[in-house]
């Protein structure tokens, strides 16, 4: 924090950690630090998409597999909001049903990636030394291994089920998550409150859970949003290679079907609607994640003497 020319409010008051000495910040003032309107729009969109996915079976929409919901390749109209595909299936209904697979992959892949990568990174960053070297090598190998080849390998071995697709993308996510968790843990471990906890007689486990974890969670949470966005796009990529789920369909699979050149020319909506919805969802996730990170970065700066 010993900057020379910080000219924000804190810089205006001097040049050292003493700057913080400006008494309690009132609750009222604290709330003024806004996360922004865009964040809430993004969150609103995500909630809408998730609710639609959940309620798909009870929504008054046609069966997504029903082949006579309209004509073949009908343009969007009052009956079929998003038009129909080559088999005359209702695209609106299919988009909603398709989101179920895409969102599931997005969510569970990230849960897996974080559940494995997070602890791996924290342990590596906390213990340093030999433990760190060993875990870092694993992370490094995971990084170096071409993701696509890994996906091909796993899916061809274990089959094209939803769980396998989640797992595949999750495994690819482990390395970047672990690396970030490790970096954050290393910087947190150097803070004096960790030394203080040790001096109090905390066990390593307690320090990791009580002191490190809460400080790693928030920046990682922001990353989770970005990760989910990547996972959804990743599933789309797998679908293009014909590696996504065999049963059912996802946004990715719908885009593949709609992108046959004749369909694309005659009825662009067949691919454009899933693309559009996926785009909005991914953008919302990215934006929300970004805002979240900035928001907590600011708070972090307000705290951080280092």
């Amino acid at each position: 924090m010993k900057l020379n020319l910080t000219t924000t409010k804190r810089g205006s008051k001097g040049l050292s950690p003493q700057d913080e000495d400006s008494s309690l910040i009132d609750d009222e003032k604290r709330e003024k630090r806004k996360i922004g309107f865009g964040f809430w729009v993004s969150i609103g969109w995500m909630i809408l998409v998730v609710i639609a996915a959940f309620l798909a079976p009870v929504l008054p929409i046609p069966d997504p597999d029903q082949t006579g919901a309209g004509g073949r390749l009908d343009a969007p109209n009052w009956d079929n909001w998003f038009g129909t595909d080559t088999n005359g299936r209702d695209m609106f209904s299919r988009t909603i049903w398709g989101s179920r697979v895409s969102l599931t992959v997005g969510f569970f892949a990230i849960v897996f990636g974080f559940a494995v990568g997070g602890p791996l990174g924290i342990v590596a960053g906390f213990f340093k030394g030999a433990t760190d070297k060993f875990l870092s090598i694993i992370i490094f190998i995971l990084f170096a291994f071409p993701g696509l080849v890994l996906a091909l390998l796993i899916i061809s071995l274990l089959g094209q089920t939803l769980a396998v697709v989640c797992l595949t993308i999750g495994i690819i996510g482990v390395a970047p998550v672990a690396r970030l968790a490790r970096a954050i843990t290393i910087s947190i471990s150097e803070r004096e409150f960790v030394a203080a906890a040790r001096i109090l007689g905390s066990t390593n486990r307690r320090i990791m859970i009580k002191e490190i974890l809460p400080n790693v969670t928030i920046p990682m949470g922001a990353l989770a949003f970005l990760g989910m966005a990547l996972a959804i796009v990743g599933e789309g990529g797998l679908a293009f290679l014909g590696l996504s789920v065999e049963e059912g369909f996802s946004w990715g699979k719908m885009i593949v079907l709609g992108s046959a050149s004749r369909t694309l020319q005659k009825a662009p909506w067949v691919s454009m609607f899933p693309i559009g919805i996926m785009f909005l969802t991914v953008m919302s996730l990215n934006y929300a994640g970004d805002r979240l990170r900035d928001f907590f970065d600011v708070r972090e700066m307000g705290i951080g003497g280092g």
Partner: peptide
């Protein structure tokens, strides 16, 4: 070593970094 630690406590220079910001 942990058992004897409570006998020796320490306070540090940087008042901000000495306290966990999330607790």
């Amino acid at each position: 070593l942990r058992k004897i630690r409570p006998k020796l406590q320490m306070i540090f220079q940087d008042p901000i970094s000495s306290l966990n910001p999330r607790r």
